[in-house]
Structure formats: structure tokens, C-alpha cells
Design a protein around this nucleic acid. Structure first.
Lengths: 340, 340
DNA sequence: CGCCTCATAGAAAAAGTTTACATTTTCTTC
DNA sequence: GAAGAAAATGTAAACTTTTTCTATGAGGCG
């Protein structure tokens, strides 16, 4: 690989002058500049990033870490992040924390990246300790839990979103509404679960009877499918399913259909997220739209502020919107999985 | 940030000894090692990656570039890549080529990465010129086109896969089979299209009548949906759809259903890929399984060989497997979109 | 003409690490 | 107990870049 010295030799100048041309600072005569540019072109010379960063300490590379690269929700968030990153001259790379925790911390701490975006910390809590990592580099987080994030964060009103969704199910006459989602822990409180309980209590219903909790945090089609299969064996009676996410909802819907139940005639199903697929399954999924791309954009903006040191942990409140589609129908007395 | 020199001072040794402890090479006495490790712990010292790479030229970081991070096909391939990368002490980051081409080339060429995996070069041909980039760093590619890749590649027998799928549709009695997918160009030949034509010709049918080509290479649910909507307006008659990918198939299926057509009673639909979602939509999709994770693993193995200089452009032939599910039914004389 | 300013360009230091080489200390072995 | 091997540690160069400092010459001005 050609270095700056090769370029300098070919252009008949000193290496310093090449730097000046590249970084466009200091005085350099027009003809000299031209010669240098030609030499750069000749060698296809690109300055060595490692040497440059070693000297300047300016890393225009940011990292994003997520638990599940295959989750389309994060996919869309990432698109938003990228957009803003590139506009600001940053490059962006994505990590998937499926593997060894130690390695990830190492990567993040060895000074490779100028900033870090953590998508949903709960799923990553085994790998990334926000308190530790924020010491090593500017960090922001997509925080979809109740309470305060330990670093600047983008918040979404998931509790209200879920609540509104359950309200809608209630408005359709449903009373036996199954909650399908993740549990809270000592550390983390699941706002979706709170939203569900809130809505049920407001309607004067038992908010615990139909709560089905998924042990490990897994947001996948397969999880929704297998959990619903199990529920159907348990003879639990319900007429609607309020799923934490669209993936869970779609998986659950399939399990219901395989059991010979019609959605929404026999059971209604709704989710939260509004993924692309949700509008294109049959029946199309009633869900709550979350502005994924905007979340990504704001995350990156927040990180830029962090890097520049002007971060005032802004709590962005993003709008959500109920998307009424086919998968929810009005309650009919005859319709119930196992009448109770 | 603490450096090696701080650590050395605290441990009362020379910086060299610290290096030796860290890299575990050369002689170092047990008690000295212990002192050094304590000092490292004290400072939370992590060697600066930039200085290290500058010196050693060993970049244990590889990049993967794709056109569409949200495509679950690539998502699963990436899981396989990651697995092997981590086993070999490499870290891995993902680029999404939605934005400026120049920037990507720059990132790749400035020596940041020790290797590059390109997922499907056609979609990236605007951004990444394999012939150029392979000069800058070891490169391998997932090659899903006819002909030879310009760099070591992992090949999949897509032509045969598609052919087998169309054979299956034919075996179910279908004759008016619509092909839904991407066109070939001067540069690239689409093996799926060839597989379709081959199967149709073998059956003595017109292989061109029902070919519907998607202009830009777009593999998404939305594309399948909108293209099928358009087809339905055109009054073209067919009884089955052979889609290039599962995403296109699922999108198309939805458009058919919205038009009041039953799948598979009125129209059969099949795809290629076997994504997770494909088994969980209703009706579940008949498709051809491709070993995505294995493809990823092999890609990374191939790249490791490239890096070590022992690459003998191995052509991996991966098995595929027809997955018969609900979305294809036997042809019935009465069933046709627009009987012709 | 002497001095100052400004345009231009090179020399050298610095960033933090690895490693070849050099040096000192300790251990074998006859 | 001396010689030579092996173990342990240190010195300094190298990796490539940016940046500060210095040097040279040209032109302007009193």
C-alpha cells in the first residue's frame, strides 16, 4: 500500500505538503497542489486511518449494538441512525451481541469507536453494562423500559401505546384479553405490561388473570408461535390477544389458525410496532405504529451531541398511532377459545 | 486514558514488559507478571487499537456490506458469518449501502478492515466495484448470479432450486405459471429466471409468456405486493406464481388475497429462500430452503483463507430443499385468475 | 538598504504500540 | 567454579499520520 511518502516523492515535495493538500490547511501553491493530487490519484492513495486517528484522536466511526440483528424493528431504527450518521460524516457499523460478552466490551473499550448506540439495553444487559461502557465512550440508548436510563436516551411512550391498544380491544367488546410479552424484573420494568394492566384496571377487569409472560426476552415469530401453542393446550379461555410486539402477534396468530381458530372471527389479535410485514399478513395485523426511523435519527442526533459534549439528556417523546386492520373484530358471545 | 507507560511505571517495569504480559510472548517472571496485571487492572488499561494496528498491520476486524440490512435473508447469513468470525478472534461489523458510494469505498480502502464480505454484488454494483475493492483488501462475495465471480465466492445452485420449484408447480397440474422476479442484464444473469425458463421449456410450455420482471433489484414485501396489484389489473391469466424470493411471494400473496382470490384454492404461490416468516404466514408458503447460516459460515471461512493467502477460489455448492407447505394446491380447471 | 510580513514548504516531534536487538541475570553442566 | 545456555528485562526503531516549529525567499515600506 502506498503511503504519504510515496506520494510525496512522486510529486517531488515533502510529506508535509501532501498532508496539507489532503487536509486543506496551511499554504500550498496551486501548481504544487495539482502535482500532489495527481500523485494521489496515481497511487490510489487513501490516508491510513489508524495513523490518523492515533495522531488526531478523532474517530468518525460509531458503533451500534443490538441483541438481534434479524429483528426488523431494529432494522428500521438502524436506517434512521445511518442516515444522520452519514450526513455528519460518520461511518457506522453494527454489532450483534449474540456471542461472547467479553469480546464486545473489549471492542468498545479499546478506543476503536467514537460513540456507541445501544438498542434496547435489557436484552443486552448480559453483554453491555451501560454504567461501565459510558465511561469509555459517548453512549446513548434506545430505552424502552420504565424509569430512567443511565445515559442519554430516546424514550417511547410504550406504556401509553399498549394501553391504547388494549382500550381498543375493550371497545370492541373484548373482556378476556390475553397479554403476551415479557415480564418485568427487579431491574427492569416492562412498560407494555404496565400499559396492559392499567387499561384492564381502568375497565374494572382482572389485570392478572390473563397475563402470559415469556421468560427470556425473546422477540421473534417463533416465540409467539410456540408460546401460543402451549397456551392453547392449557385450556385458558380468552377472546383477544394483546401482544407486546408484532412478531409475537404474528407468530401467535399462526398458532391460533393452525388450531383451527379463525382470526378475527374466533379470536382477535393485536400487536405493537407496525412492522412492514404486519400489513401484509393475512389477516393484516391491528397494531400500534412506532416511528422507527425517526427514533434512529434522534438517537444519532443525541449521540452527536454527546460527542460534542453538549448533551442534555433529552427525553424525546415520540408519537404512536393505532393502526386498525383486520386482525381484530368485535366480540361475539359465541367466539372464545375456551369459553369460561 | 491510561497508556502502557502509566502501567509500566506503576508496576515498576519497562513498557516492553507490559507488552509482553499483554501479548503473552517472550519471557516474564511470575511475580512481575502479577504486578503488571494488577497495574493493568488498576488503570482499566486496554491497549490502543490504533497504535497496535499501525504497528502490527493485523486488523482482526472484518466488514460486511449489504444493500439491505432489513432483508431477513441476509440477516441469517450474517449470523453465520459472525459465528465463525468470533470463533477466530475477529470482530465483525455490518455496513448498509443505502447511502453515498464514495464514502463506502473510502471506509473500505483506508485500511480500517482486514477483510470484506460482500452480500450479493448486483445490488451493490453502484457502490462497490469488486475489481477495485479486492485490490485494497481481501474480499469474498456471496454470488447468486450465473457465471464467475471476480473474487472467491460462495455459490448457491439457485437455478436448480428455482427449476425444482417450478417442476413442483407443474407436477401439481399448473401450466400458466407466472414468474415474479428480477431481470438479467448484460452484466448479470439471474439464475432464478434461467431456472424458471428451463423448467417451462422442459415441460414444452412457453417460457416467456408469463415472465413479469421487476425493473430495479428490489427484494421486499412491498415490491411483491405492488407488482402483483399491477398484474391483477392487467388481466393476465395464470394459476400459479413462481416468485424469486419469499418476500416477493408473501407480498404477492397478500395482493391476491386482497383481490378476493384464495391461496391456494384460486392461485398457488411459491417462493425461494425459506425465511422464518414463510412458515408462519397464512397460508404457509411453499418454498425452497437455502442454508443461510451455512452460507454465512462458509463465507467467513473463505475470507479467513483469503486473509491467510491460501485461497483457492472454492466453489461451494450448497444443497437446497423444497419445502412443501400450504400455499400451493393442485390445479383445478375452475381455478384461474383470469381464465384464458 | 534594512526590516517586517506573508506565502510557501520542509524538518522534526508526537501519538501508543510491537518487536528486533542488546544487555543483564540466573541456571546447567562438566 | 567457569563457560555457555536460557531466562528476564530494557532500549530504540518502526508503523503513518498530523501539526508545530523553523527556514527561505519575495515583496512592501520607511
Amino acid at each position: 500500500m502506498a503511503t504519504r511518502i510515496d506520494v510525496a516523492k512522486r510529486a517531488g515535495v515533502s510529506p508535509t505538503t501532501v498532508s496539507r493538500v489532503i487536509n486543506d490547511n496551511g499554504y500550498v501553491a496551486a501548481d504544487v497542489r495539482k502535482r500532489v493530487l495527481e500523485a494521489i490519484e496515481f497511487y490510489h492513495y487513501v490516508p491510513n486511518k489508524f495513523a490518523r486517528v492515533l495522531r488526531t484522536r478523532q474517530k468518525k466511526e460509531i458503533a451500534c449494538i443490538t441483541h438481534s440483528i434479524t429483528n426488523p424493528f431494529y432494522g428500521e431504527v438502524v436506517l434512521g441512525i445511518e442516515e444522520v450518521a452519514f450526513q455528519n460524516g460518520y461511518t457506522f457499523s453494527l454489532y450483534n451481541a449474540n456471542f461472547h460478552d467479553r469480546d464486545y466490551r473489549r471492542v468498545l473499550e479499546e478506543g476503536f469507536y467514537g460513540g456507541l448506540i445501544v438498542l434496547s439495553p435489557v436484552e443486552l444487559s448480559k453483554f453491555v453494562r451501560l454504567e461501565q461502557v459510558k465511561e469509555a465512550l459517548p453512549t446513548v440508548v434506545y430505552w424502552d423500559w420504565r424509569g430512567e436510563a443511565p445515559v442519554p436516551a430516546v424514550y417511547v411512550q410504550l406504556q401509553n401505546a399498549m394501553r391504547e391498544m388494549v382500550h381498543f380491544l375493550l371497545s370492541q367488546g373484548h373482556r378476556e384479553i390475553l397479554f403476551l410479552g415479557h415480564d418485568s424484573s427487579q431491574e427492569w420494568e416492562n412498560p407494555r405490561l404496565f400499559g396492559y394492566r392499567q387499561a384492564m384496571q381502568e375497565a374494572g377487569l382482572d389485570a392478572e388473570k390473563h397475563v402470559t409472560l415469556i421468560p427470556e426476552w425473546q422477540d421473534s415469530l417463533q416465540t409467539g408461535y410456540t408460546v401460543m401453542k402451549k397456551i392453547l393446550q392449557s385450556k385458558q379461555g380468552f377472546t383477544a390477544v394483546a401482544a407486546s410486539t408484532d412478531l409475537l402477534a404474528i407468530g401467535a396468530m399462526r398458532a391460533l389458525q393452525e388450531a383451527g381458530l379463525r382470526v378475527p372471527a374466533d379470536v382477535s389479535v393485536a400487536g405493537v410496532d407496525n412492522l412492514e410485514i404486519s400489513a401484509l399478513v393475512t389477516p393484516s395485523l391491528t397494531t400500534v405504529h412506532l416511528p422507527k426511523r425517526e427514533i434512529g435519527q434522534r438517537l444519532m442526533q443525541l449521540l452527536l451531541q454527546q460527542i460534542q459534549g453538549v448533551s442534555h439528556s433529552l427525553k424525546d417523546i415520540f408519537p404512536y398511532q393505532l393502526m386498525v386492520r383486520e386482525s381484530v373484530g368485535a366480540f361475539r358471545p359465541s367466539s372464545s377459545v375456551h369459553p369460561c
